[in-house]
Design a binder for these strands. Sequence first.
RNA 1: GCCCCCAUCGUCUAGCGGUCUAGGACGCCGCCCUUUCAAGGCGGUAACACGGGUUCGAACCCCGUUGGGGGUGCCA
Length: 471
Amino acid sequence: MPVTTTPRVRFAPAPTGSLHVGGARTALFNWLYARHNGGTFVLRIEDTDTERSRQEWVQAIRDALTWLGLEWDEEYRQSERADRYQAAIDQLLASGDAYECFCTQEQLDERAAAAKTEGRAPGYDGTCRDLSEAQREDLRAQGATVTVRFKVPRVGVSTFTDIIRGDVSVAWDTIADFVIRRSSGEAVFYVANAVDDYDMGITHVIRGEDLLDSTHRVLAIRHALGFDIDPLFAHLPLLVGADRSKLSKRHGAVAMSAFAEGGYLSAALVNYIALLGFPAEDGNEIQTLAELTDAFDLDRVNRSAAFFDYEKLGWMNAEYIRALSAEEFAAAVAPYVAERYGDVDADILNQACSLAQGRSKTLVEAADQMGFLFRSDDEFSIDPEAWQRATKLDDWVDVVTAAAAHIETCEWTVDGVDLRPTLTALDIKARKGMPVLYAAIEGTDRGLPLFESIILVGRERAVKRLNAVLE
RNA sequence: GCCCCCAUCGUCUAGCGGUCUAGGACGCCGCCCUUUCAAGGCGGUAACACGGGUUCGAACCCCGUUGGGGGUGCCA
């Protein structure tokens, strides 16, 4: 009879860098699984490698999860559980499931190199596997540095059932004896992982496919330790870059902090990364966290790697930006504006926001679009390419001259500054004549609506900019 | 090298033996709308990697090939 237990899942990042999109998606899928099933979401910092782990990264990861809205229920730090891992390793040593290895790094390197040239497997060759106690005693007396290796079975097959991939098997003889205790005395990930998942009552291990092969090792340790119940595994397809390799820093801005600084809304990012591997059932791809939680099902997660497409993320972010209320949008843009232009007039900012909200893929883009309003006259410049496009019109000088004359005297309302009649009087179509005016006032021919913008720029500055291009 | 995983439009995917002349989304290309640009509307471009089976019938099942990725560490 199946026993119903409330699921316990964990997100277990190594604090060797800030949280990146791949990790964020793993965290999200764990969180969704826990929340959908009324289970527990555990954050476990895997900092067994003291050389590479940094406290600042722990905080960066916590901040990133918070930004994403993925609150966790429990938090552990493996560095605080070292004794437990040592006890486990001692137990394996005592039971004969692990052994001391006295090989030096140099010897290991030499043998690996030799194995490579001879076309043999590069893994550990088992030199110390069957040493007698006397031999070990001797080597210890010589002060040889010691690591502990797990004694992998020489025959048979390891099999486990993955929720996403089905049965996964591998012959034991293709797995070399691996180190479980470094010469520094620290336990390595395999042990910490096996012990913690058991101690913490983890029922479902949901992680990236890059850890698929390590599952056999972790399971072997669990069994050797006498843990009778295996957790269920679900290995998520990897996120890849343009070259189809595992997504990493070299593929661009992948850190959560970079997305935040780049003006992406966390809700949009969450929605997008959920879509990578967990398609919308009804075709409606815009889904809130609540909707995703409701629909989430590991059985529907895809098996193949997904390309992280910044284009589509940009579209989705724009959708989320448009869905914001005017107040929310203004509040969201404000920091980006302040960062670029310092203190600005709140009223003008609000009005500029109402013009920019529907035209930006990111908050950064929105702030950039307002540059012509908040930059000083010295800093204002016209994009050369835009100017070239705009001045393809033969009569552009006439257009600007007439516009300047109109702006100088017209009624100061949006209707009043409407320059279409001015263009009509010159017998020039709006489509043809407007770009040069956009360029002169906003510095680009693809900016915010012109008449509203002119009001915000102010009569004096507007006339000045129009006259400036005539010189 | 060896082991494992994967394989539908450029990209993310729907499809779970017949309803597929393969559907949606992003992108791209037209047209409409229009105060430039967006947004929106309409239309279009574009895919079942290959070869064998199984079957009355394969995008869907099996095998192989090819291709891609991951692992193979005193990283996780």
